[in-house]
């Protein structure tokens, strides 16, 4: 998706967070947009019960007008009594194929209910 001035303005009004200089995208906005991008893959979304935490690295600035996509990989799965923990590695990539942000998310995901 192309990140526009509108995204930056809506995000700024909603959160009060902004970019360091005009023309740049606020650093946390691409991160926020990746969750929605994850909903547009053919695979149905995870049955997330809770988002437990994450680590995130900003590799390069993103500019208004840049087009991003995101790539994810499940790297760990641990079963617990109620649901299980999934660790997902995620990258945000720009139109030149450069990784602009990347990190690791930890989710608590529901187990499939036993069919009645």
């Amino acid at each position: 998706m192309t990140v526009t001035e509108t995204h930056v303005a809506l995000y700024g009004g909603l959160t009060g967070d902004g970019a360091r200089e005009h023309g740049l995208v606020p650093d946390l906005l691409p991160l926020c947009l990746t969750t929605g991008l994850g909903w547009r893959v053919p695979q149905p979304p995870l049955a997330v019960m809770a988002f437990m935490g994450f680590e995130w690295v900003v590799d390069a600035p993103l500019r208004v007008g840049d087009t991003i996509h995101s790539r994810s990989k499940t790297t760990l799965k641990r079963s617990m009594k109620e649901g299980g923990v999934i660790v997902e590695e995620r990258q945000v990539i720009n139109q030149r194929g450069e990784v602009v942000q990347h990190g690791k998310f930890t989710f608590l995901v529901a187990k499939r209910p036993a069919s009645a």
Partner: peptide, 11 residues
């Protein structure tokens, strides 16, 4: 600030 380099976060 010149750059935001990263974060570690818990909910």
């Amino acid at each position: 600030t010149l750059a935001f380099v990263g974060l570690r976060w818990k909910f």
